[in-house]
């Protein structure tokens, strides 16, 4: 029942309709100047990049096990069961841990604001809840960005690769990266060339596991360490007490004589 997006770079014509559709849906400014910006920012959730005659889109990957959600001290991010990783601005304290933790560098910050928010593609949760597709998928004139059930999109992506192996690289970026995402990329050129982190480098392990290995031990560590510290305290002070008692005794014996 989890939804996802499939972006097929070979079908993309670089019209940037998704950029403007996203801006409209999310009340972000959009004009020629913003369209010309080739990086994502607090006011640009998604970007279409051009290299030679090829295009590549970037947006939040909506990881299955999102790092941003696991690191946030106040749980301002969470993965919904429909797929989107959404942000509750009223919780956020602005520590920006989500930004440093996300391997895809997706969360951006309103650096100029006095009450700044973290901004990233949120996969149009309102539209999804209403049974619609995301704004970027709805507006895409060629179907390069396609919205659907996660499982369906995976099999469709595999089919496309099988049917035209000469067009596509034999990989679906996002299928296994950091434990799988909800945004898949098909392309004839490696996504890494457009700034996506290398699959080999980020690996297939869900990011929260790196901290989980340590965090999971804390509940055991606390009682053990407390007991150990208490024990040391007791022993070292017990020795003092015994010594004091002995001294006292000796003194009494001494005065008794």
């Amino acid at each position: 029942m989890s939804k996802a997006l499939l972006y097929d770079a070979t079908m993309c014509i670089g019209c940037k309709q998704c950029e403007s559709g996203c801006a409209q849906q999310n009340n972000l400014p959009y004009d020629d100047k913003v369209a010309a910006e080739s990086v994502q920012s607090a006011h640009k959730y998604t970007v279409v990049m051009t290299k030679d005659d090829k295009f590549m889109r970037r947006l939040c990957m909506h990881c299955e096990k999102p790092a941003c959600a696991s690191v946030c001290p106040v749980g301002a991010f969470h993965k919904t069961k429909e797929g989107p990783v959404v942000y509750d601005v009223w919780k956020c304290i602005g520590c920006r841990y989500c930004m440093v933790a996300c391997v895809f560098g997706q969360p951006k910050y309103e650096w100029q604001s006095l009450n700044p928010r973290v901004r990233k593609c949120i996969m149009c949760p309102d539209l999804i809840a209403a049974g619609k597709q995301t704004a970027c998928a709805a507006i895409c004139p060629t179907g390069a960005t396609k919205f659907g059930e996660r499982d369906d999109l995976i099999s469709e992506a595999k089919d496309r690769i099988r049917q035209s192996p000469s067009t596509y690289l034999p990989r679906i970026y996002g299928l296994n990266e950091v434990g799988g995402t909800s945004v898949f990329i098909l392309s004839s050129v490696n996504a890494e060339e457009y700034g996506y982190p290398a699959s080999a480098k980020i690996g297939d392990t869900p990011m929260p596991e790196y901290t989980g290995r340590v965090m999971d031990r804390i509940p055991d560590f606390i009682p053990v360490w407390t007991l150990a510290l208490g024990g040391i305290y007791w022993i070292s002070h017990r020795r003092d007490e015994v010594a004091a008692a002995e001294a006292e005794e000796r003194k009494q014996n001494g005065s008794g004589k």
């Binding site: 696991s70 690191v71 946030c72 749980g75 956020c92 304290i93 520590c95 965090m215």
Partner: peptide
């Protein structure tokens, strides 16, 4: 450093025990 320091107390009510920052 916090972008919204006036919400620092949110730590106490919206706890996320998986977060190192929370710990």
């Amino acid at each position: 450093d916090l972008g919204r320091p006036w919400y620092i107390w949110h730590q106490l009510i919206y706890m996320n025990p998986h977060s190192v920052m929370f710990e």
